Computed example of a mutant assay.
Amino acid sequence: MPTTFVTPKVKKRIIPQRPSTSVDPFEPEPALGMDDYDHILSVLSNMVDVMERSPKSFKGMNEEGLRTHFLVHLNGHYEGQATGETFNYEGKTDILIRVDSRVIFIAECKFWTGPSGMENTIDQLLGYTSWRDTKTAILVFNRDREMSTVLSRIPEVVRKHPSYKADGTYDSETGFRYVFGHRNDTNRELTLTVLVFDVPA
């Protein structure tokens, strides 16, 4: 009788892991509709009236101070959802609105320094937008320049940008709307509205 024996090979049984299921209904990510987008822009545009009523309060104010006034105005409508100098994608954006932790609006504020400055601002804004971001704005502050000249130069600069796709419809003497393609996916479109403000010197 042999003193040892070989045990038969036991085949390992694979027990499948069942994916967890949720009883909660599917909730789509929040997106900003055009009506709400236009309302945000109207809130920002109404700052013109504030500047005209209190020009001394804005005289000599820098970009950060102006942005703070716009944020206060926005948060009066959007319950503290608007923030400034907030990290998003590749940098810090000047004005950002979130809903349920999801970015729905991004804006950049800049003083008009000429066409090259506008080009850089567009590049900067596009750098802040992820693939999901589709509603954006640039607030241009004009000081000590002819307003009509600034307004005439902006479309020229924007239409030369490589991500520019088309003009949009926007009924404003001091605003423009454009359709852009995302930097890394030209088929994904975003809306860019440019608002120009004549700031007291």
Rank of each mutant, 00 (worst) to 15 (best):
T83E: 12
L32A: 06
E108Y: 01
F197Y: 06
M1K: 09
A82S: 06
G80R: 05
Y78Q: 07
G114W: 02
G91K: 12
L192W: 01
A31E: 14
V72I: 13
T4I: 12
T7A: 13
L66C: 14
L41C: 12
S101Q: 12
G60M: 02
H161V: 03
R102I: 12
V23G: 06
E119Q: 15
R53E: 11
I40K: 07
R13Y: 11
D35N: 08
N62A: 01
G91A: 12
L139E: 00
I40S: 07
S22Y: 01
M34A: 10
V140E: 04
L74V: 06
V199D: 00
V6E: 15
L126V: 14
R132F: 07
E108L: 03
V23C: 05
T7R: 15
M61L: 10
F70P: 03
K110E: 10
A201Q: 12
D123E: 14
S116G: 07
Y170C: 05
S22E: 05
G65I: 14
D167W: 03
R98G: 06
I97L: 10
N142V: 15
K165L: 12
N75Y: 02
K9F: 09
H39A: 08
S163Q: 15
T93A: 15
G60Y: 08
Q17E: 15
F58K: 00
P115T: 05
G84P: 08
T113F: 01
P16Q: 05
G60I: 03
E63T: 00
E119H: 11
K92I: 12
R53A: 15
K12G: 13
E79V: 10
D24N: 09
E29Q: 15
N142H: 08
Y37A: 10
E189V: 09
A107V: 04
F105N: 07
L151V: 10
D144C: 09
N75L: 03
M47T: 04
M51E: 04
R67C: 08
P155L: 11
M34G: 00
G114F: 04
P19S: 02
P16W: 01
C109Q: 00
M147F: 15
S172I: 02
V157I: 09
F197A: 03
P162D: 02
F141S: 01
F197L: 06
M1Q: 07
E173Q: 12
L195E: 00
